[in-house]
Design a protein around this nucleic acid. Structure first.
Length: 569
DNA sequence: GCCGTTTTCGGCCCGACTGTTTTCAGTCG
């Protein structure tokens, strides 16, 4: 059984226990254990066979026994029994806004309802009214929650969230009542997909700020509106929350609502050791509040350097901050060249000259062109003759530039047998080669891993393109042994792509830090098919920062001279 | 569920808002 599967089951047990009405702390023990396994960069089977699980904080006798059973037999009796006792439809109901474990179990126990469809029918037939602490209002809310579930996605791509949040922010920040205001939550942490928008503001007149927020034209429905907190649904189905505090409470509130929950919980443990207490209104030493003017001050209280929001995932940032080992995160300004760009030769919309001009205007020193290869017929992949033409055009353009260079490359399909789709003769004519999988996504893990590793052993390969092939909120990545692939990239000096397209953001940031520690190198590439898509670079930088990367870990932070040197030209 | 120098039981994270009920339960983040 894979670690991923164990993590999934632990999380599900946590949810099932919540439904059963068990103590929240018991559920949390399972969630925390799942979380720990996610962070630990070790083989689960080794951890079990070497009996090292019980040495990890949060793994007591019960959890160790259960995980051992799961890993050695592939089964867990406790889990099977739990699942039998709770219809799976009840788990789905947790997604309905306003409906939690208590009400779900009341509905199930009194009315025998097991699925969302049955629940919907019951609401429409007024069957919930007689249940204790239910009413017409609550029934209507549940019904609306069910309809929203069908009408709206519950998650959105980062770039959509950012766009909407900026629009709301612009509206609020212009108010004379607002002193400080910014986006918090997962958007501030630059998560690749977001559930909602969190905004924090400081003001002496929260009432007015709430009105401004809830009156925005994007607001479709007000879920809650109070003096410090309001919650709305926007026209696109997204939820947005605002918290308004006094200005001297702002840094604490900002930190609290930036999260992550896991980061906050871990920091509270640290605070406790200092004899301090943290909540959204302050850091307290008994009754006394410790003054902070901003988040830099906030972390100073715990002898920590400022932790950038992107790192606040409880992936080791607190320890690093204590030991002064936080990375100097890469910034967009560190990027010196545009990589993985498609032109009109294949499915791009701009000419090489237009792309180069835009690069120069943006201060980039080089452009790495990589159109599709000939197997990608659907995308106008380049024939051998077209490659020759493109190379001639690049040579002519390069003669005109003094402080700028265009490099000749290709995004070559990794064919099902792991070979690239040109002869060595043709491959040799490029300055660099990105190898990407664009077909037969549904191979099993062993075959797909073998396929990619064979390509990584091709001496002409420079970069592994979008390593998992995922499309966020749309398609899971292909099944691969990512550890083996990363290890092979390191051995063979292949650069791992961080594809900055906001619908890909592939490789996932969760893999990056461990790979970096092992010596992996990365490139942030736009995969641009138009000049407009150069903007994608900042999403790629977000991912790199979430993966703890510094400029020296990233290929296109190198100077032009160093790139020429690297590509041995 | 886990944990432990107040140690084998009793804490563990808590505040805001809604709606039902009249002091509080449920949900959410």
């Amino acid at each position: 059984m894979t670690k991923r599967e164990v993590i999934r089951i632990l999380n599900e047990i946590g949810v099932l226990l919540e439904l059963k009405g068990e103590s929240f702390f018991k559920s949390r023990a399972y969630y925390e254990a799942a979380r720990k396994l996610e962070i630990i960069d070790e083989d689960i089977e080794k951890l079990v066979s070497q009996q090292r699980l019980e040495n990890i904080e949060g793994f007591g006798r019960a959890l160790t026994q259960k995980i051992t059973e799961l890993v050695t037999t592939g089964q867990l009796k406790y889990y099977n029994k739990l699942r039998e006792s709770i219809p799976s439809g009840l788990l789905d109901m947790l997604k309905i806004q306003g409906l939690g474990p208590k009400r779900i179990m009341t509905i199930h126990a009194s009315l025998g309802i097991n699925t969302i469809d049955e629940l919907k029918k019951a609401c429409e037939e007024d069957k919930l009214l007689d249940l204790p602490r239910f009413s017409k209002k609550i029934q209507a809310k549940i019904l609306e929650g069910i309809n929203n579930l069908n009408n709206y996605a519950d998650k959105f791509h980062y770039n959509i969230g950012e766009m909407v949040a900026n629009e709301l922010l612009k509206h609020i920040i212009n108010s004379p009542y607002v002193k400080r205001c910014q986006v918090a939550g997962s958007l501030r942490r630059k998560k690749e997909v977001v559930k909602d928008i969190d905004i924090i503001a400081s003001s002496d007149n929260p009432h007015e700020v709430m009105n401004i927020f809830t009156n925005h034209s994007y607001v479709k429905e007000i879920i809650a509106k109070g003096e410090t907190k309001s919650s709305v649904v926007l026209v696109n189905g997204m939820n947005a929350d605002i918290r308004v505090v006094n200005d001297d409470e702002y840094p604490y509130a900002l930190h609290h609502f930036t999260g992550s929950k896991e980061h906050n919980t871990a920091l509270r443990h640290v605070a406790k050791k200092h004899g301090l207490k943290i909540n959204e209104y302050g850091i307290f030493n008994g009754q006394q509040k410790i003054k902070c003017k901003d988040e830099v001050d906030f972390f100073k209280v715990f002898d920590m350097k400022y932790i950038h929001p992107e790192l606040r995932e409880n992936y080791g940032e607190l320890e690093a901050a204590l030991n002064n080992k936080l990375p100097h995160l890469v910034t967009l300004g560190d990027i010196k060249g545009m990589v993985h760009v498609h032109t009109m030769y294949s499915d791009g919309s701009a000419t090489i000259k237009q792309l180069a001009k835009e690069c120069i205007a943006r201060g980039y020193k080089y452009l790495l062109i990589s159109d599709h290869s000939k197997s990608a017929v659907y995308a106008g992949g380049l024939s051998e003759d077209e490659i020759k033409m493109q190379h001639e055009e690049i040579d002519i353009l390069n003669e005109k530039y003094t402080d700028f260079k265009i490099f000749k490359g290709i995004e070559s399909d990794i064919l099902t047998d792991g070979s690239l789709d040109y002869s060595d003769e043709v491959l040799k004519s490029f300055d660099f080669i990105i190898g990407s999988v664009h077909s037969s996504f549904r191979m099993n893990e062993e075959k797909m891993t073998k396929r990619i590793i064979k390509a990584l052993n091709n001496p002409y390969m420079t970069i592994l393109g979008h390593p998992t092939g995922r499309l966020l909120l749309n398609r899971a990545g292909y099944k691969i042994n990512i550890d083996k692939i990363i290890d092979t990239c390191i051995e063979n000096n292949i650069i791992i792509e961080i594809n900055a397209n906001p619908y890909r953001l592939d490789i996932d940031w969760r893999y990056i830090k461990a790979a970096k520690d092992k010596g992996a190198k990365f490139v942030i590439s736009s995969d641009a098919h138009s000049i407009k898509e150069f903007e994608y670079m900042r999403y790629g930088v977000n991912v790199a920062r979430k993966g703890w990367l510094e400029h020296r870990d990233i290929f296109n932070c190198l100077s032009l001279e160093k790139v020429v040197d690297y590509l041995k030209l």
